[in-house]
Design a protein around this nucleic acid. Structure first.
Lengths: 140, 140
DNA sequence: CCGACATGTAACTATTGACATTACAGCTCA
DNA sequence: TGAGCTGTAATGTCAATAGTTACATGTCGG
């Protein structure tokens, strides 16, 4: 079980848009070539990034640009944009615990808060990294 | 995308073993009844918990007990026991970035450390909660 | 010592989500 | 107007989860 590569692809996409905006028309084909996947995959992910207000694409003519400054886009923004966590819940849960058992009746209530704390710890970590940080870390 | 419910089922299982050890013979059937699933599912998860040294089951006769004290079993121990993260990596990654592209060539190297920090933040959070904490939080 | 009852697994199925791919409608500009 | 791009639907493949049946194996009570 692993978190979908949609996340790493989305980050890759945003980096490409920013890095190559001066010298290339950054199309889904172009990005797909860098990521190593199909252009449609990129378009779907770009569609999610657009809905989240991170990206804008020019219909018809092609070309893409960021809607925010790289220092204002965090990895958490990207993760949420591509719906990495179903219903915003990272942890899955068995849905039929026995309500007649003292453990089954309370397990959900007892475990949930600890799961949420763990998820929040991860999200906070992601929130501390921006696209600009990554751009600076990319070798020239 | 969500982390498998194996984790919550494993925690549920351990709690049952400890809570009912005085008054019941805790079999896979018994636990399955509390979790709301099939006994074989429970046996598979118990098998993983055994390999991790958290649990012991009596072959033939039935019945199960913990190998450690509840205060010495953390949620992280359980998560690792049921192999929640493939190759210990929580985050998936696209595996074919283009090595001829300056972004594709470095994306893995640049993103990996941030992913690991985020994962570590979550694991640290899980490490801070023990089975005993949960037992105390269960209403009597 | 044998039968009832558990565990430990293998095998099979159903379901779901990720990812890939083809196809095509719609938009824009040279 | 046509080349090139986006947006999206439809379809296929693959892997993992979860459920189920079946059965070999082990253990203890009677």
């Amino acid at each position: 079980m692993q978190i979908s590569s949609r996340f790493s692809v989305a980050v890759h996409t945003l980096l490409c848009v920013e890095v190559f905006k001066e010298n290339y028309k950054v199309t889904s084909d172009f990005i797909a070539g860098s990521v190593g996947t199909n252009p449609v995959i990129i378009r779907k992910i770009m569609s999610q990034l657009k809905k989240a207000g991170l990206l804008e694409a020019l219909a018809g003519t092609g070309g893409t640009y960021l809607c925010k400054k790289p220092e204002d886009i965090t990895l958490l923004d990207v993760a949420l944009a591509v719906e990495l966590f179903e219903n915003d819940r990272l942890f899955g849960f068995h849905d039929m615990p026995n309500p007649n058992c003292p453990v089954g009746k309370n397990i959900h209530h007892v475990l949930d808060c600890h799961m949420q704390v763990a998820q929040a710890a991860m999200e906070n970590s992601l929130k501390g990294v921006t696209l600009k940080d990554l751009l600076l870390e990319l070798p020239q």
